[in-house]
C-alpha cells in the first residue's frame, strides 16, 4: 500500500518568484543551445566557402531571424535576472517587497535591452 502524494505543482498558486525562476532556467537552456549555434558560426567563418554560405543563409532566413530575436530576448532576460541573482548572492534585496519590485524591474530591463540591441542592429 502506498499513500497518495499531496498535490503540488499544478495546485500551487503561481508565484512571481517561482515563475521568474523557471524562466531563468528556460532561458538558460535556450542560451546554451545558442552557444552551440555561435560556436558553429565561428567555425563556419573559418571554414568558409559552401559551409559559410549555408550557415549564413540559415541565420538570415526569416525563421533564423525570429530565432535570433528570441535568443536576444532570452539573453536580455537571463542577463537581467542573473544580475538580480548576483545581488541576492551578495545578501542584498531579500525582503518580499524588494523581491517583487526587482522582478518587475527585470522584465522592464529585458524589454529595453532587447529593443536597444535590435535598434542598434537595424540602424547600423
Amino acid at each position: 500500500m502506498s499513500r497518495p502524494l499531496s498535490p503540488h505543482l499544478t495546485w500551487y498558486k503561481p508565484q512571481i518568484t517561482s515563475t521568474l525562476s523557471i524562466l531563468h532556467r528556460f532561458t538558460g537552456i535556450v542560451l546554451a543551445l545558442g552557444a552551440v549555434a555561435l560556436s558553429w558560426w565561428v567555425a563556419a567563418v573559418a571554414i568558409g566557402g559552401e559551409t559559410y554560405a549555408g550557415t549564413a543563409w540559415l541565420y538570415t532566413s526569416i525563421a533564423g531571424q525570429i530565432v535570433l530575436f528570441g535568443w536576444t530576448l532570452a539573453l536580455a532576460f537571463h542577463l537581467s535576472n542573473g544580475i538580480r541573482h548576483l545581488f541576492w548572492d551578495a545578501g542584498i534585496g531579500f525582503d518580499m517587497p524588494t523581491v517583487n519590485r526587482s522582478g518587475i524591474a527585470v522584465l522592464v530591463m529585458t524589454a529595453l535591452l532587447t529593443l536597444a540591441v535590435w535598434l542598434i542592429v537595424l540602424l547600423a
Binding site: 508565484q15 517561482s18 531579500f94
Partner: peptide, 26 residues
C-alpha cells in the same frame, strides 16, 4: 537552493529562509 524565493513568500512568521541560505553560501 536556486533562490526561487517561494519559501520567503510562504513563511507565516515573516522569516526569510532564502536570506539565511544565501548567507550560508557566502
Amino acid at each position: 537552493c536556486h533562490t526561487i524565493m517561494n519559501c520567503t513568500s510562504a513563511c507565516p512568521k515573516g522569516l526569510n529562509p532564502s536570506k539565511a541560505i544565501a548567507d550560508t553560501k557566502r
